[in-house]
């Protein structure tokens, strides 16, 4: 099973930042078997990291593994967008908008 790798860029301890972290954790709580790595980067403390990744808005979630990289801008409150973008599908729904290959291992 591939470990998903994420970076989440936030600005300080704003409510939006907190919400994004909570929403992401809540989302993965539904997939207990999925392994993921999440690095939270505060752009105020580490602006160079934001520079490297051309971050414009916060919060921004980047899925780095598996490739290709995907980004979700916002506090991840739109669960449907998160579901479509990250590509973890419930067994009842296996249509995906994305054409990533080799992700079957992360599905239940």
């Amino acid at each position: 099973m591939v470990t998903l790798v994420f970076e989440l860029f936030v600005t300080g301890r704003t409510r939006q930042s907190q919400r994004a972290i909570q929403n992401l954790r809540a989302y993965f709580a539904d997939f207990p078997d999925v392994e993921y790595e999440l690095t939270i980067i505060d752009v105020i403390e580490q602006p160079d990291r934001a520079e490297e990744r051309h971050i414009l808005a916060t919060p921004t979630l980047i899925r780095l593994v598996p490739p290709p990289p995907l980004r979700i801008i916002g506090d991840l409150s739109d669960r449907e967008i998160v579901r479509q973008t990250i590509g973890l599908l419930s067994s009842a729904d296996d249509s995906s908008n994305h054409s990533h290959q080799g992700e079957d291992s992360s599905h239940e």
């Binding site: 939006q16 916060t58 979700i72 801008i73």
Partner: peptide, 11 residues
């Protein structure tokens, strides 16, 4: 890139 919630240009 997709939009999935509220955001600002804090970065």
């Amino acid at each position: 890139t997709v939009i999935g919630g509220e955001y600002d240009l804090g970065a």
